[in-house]
Each structure stands twice: as structure tokens, then as C-alpha cells.
């Protein structure tokens, strides 16, 4: 799984088969014409990669998936000053990662293996004058 993390930084090891966690990058059509649209596409991807440093993609495979996605949506919303839907974020991610092939985080799995009884914290039993 190591490479996934570093994958954020470099963009060039996706040359071969589609079975890698890095999905074959659909490169933006030729760089000859620099339409503003393409530029914004690049900008978008750059921001996304930045966001992935905070919200690593493998976290999308476990119990925390939706909150990670929420984090990504918010990150992009802040960066571009417009709302991003979860689908939009997932589509963007799809350019870089084959999410299904990512393994969930160990600590997330571990979290669910540790069964304990619910325990209402002591503070709830103290009367609060509100």
C-alpha cells in the first residue's frame, strides 16, 4: 500500500495495466491548446491531490468513508467557492485511483474488532443548570 501515499506526488507510474490501484490516468486532451477550461481541470486535480494528503483515499474504503468524502467535498468547496457533490468528487478520484482495489485502513478494521459495552460517561449523571 505504500505506493498509494506517494502516488499523490508523482503522476507517472500509471503506464501499464488497469489492474493497479492507480487507474490509467485519463490525461486531458493534448496540451497544445490551453483553453481556460483545461486549465481549470488541472487546477482541480491539483487541489484534489492536495486534499488527498489530508484525507487519504484508503480511508474511503472503511467505516469512515462518508466523513472522509465530506471532508473532500468541503475542501474543494472552499478552494473553488462552489459546492461539490459526492459523485463529482468520486468521479475526480476515479482518475487517479481504482477505489475498489484499495484496502481499508488497518486501524479502521481494528476499531470494529474491539467489542465493548456501552458506557454512559459520568458527566451525564451530573445535573446541569442550563
Amino acid at each position: 500500500m505504500k505506493e498509494i501515499e506517494s502516488g499523490g506526488g508523482k503522476g507517472r507510474d500509471e503506464e501499464q495495466d488497469g489492474m493497479s490501484v492507480h487507474s490509467p490516468c485519463k490525461a486531458p486532451p493534448s496540451s497544445a491548446s490551453s483553453l481556460p477550461k483545461e486549465q481549470s481541470q488541472v487546477e482541480l486535480e491539483l487541489r484534489l491531490l492536495e486534499a488527498l494528503e489530508i484525507y487519504p483515499p484508503f480511508k474511503l474504503q472503511g467505516i469512515h468513508r462518508h466523513f472522509v468524502l465530506f471532508g473532500l467535498m468541503e475542501f474543494l468547496r472552499k478552494s473553488f467557492d462552489r459546492p461539490f457533490s459526492s459523485d463529482e468528487v468520486l468521479q475526480l478520484l476515479d482518475r487517479f485511483y481504482n477505489l475498489e482495489l484499495l484496502k481499508p485502513d488497518d486501524e479502521d478494521v481494528e476499531l470494529l474488532n474491539h467489542e465493548e459495552d456501552f458506557c454512559l460517561p459520568q458527566s451525564y449523571f451530573i445535573k446541569e443548570e442550563s
Binding site: I63, H66, F70, F84, S86, L112
Partner: peptide, 18 residues
């Protein structure tokens, strides 16, 4: 609002697993 939807999904997922 998509973000609320995502949070609710997250809550549901947490609930089922937790």
C-alpha cells in the same frame, strides 16, 4: 444539500457498524 446527505449516510454507516 449534498453535504448533509453525506453526513447522514455517515451516521447511518457508523450506526450499523458501531
Amino acid at each position: 444539500t449534498d453535504s448533509i446527505g453525506e453526513i447522514l449516510k455517515g451516521i447511518r454507516c457508523y450506526f450499523d457498524k458501531a
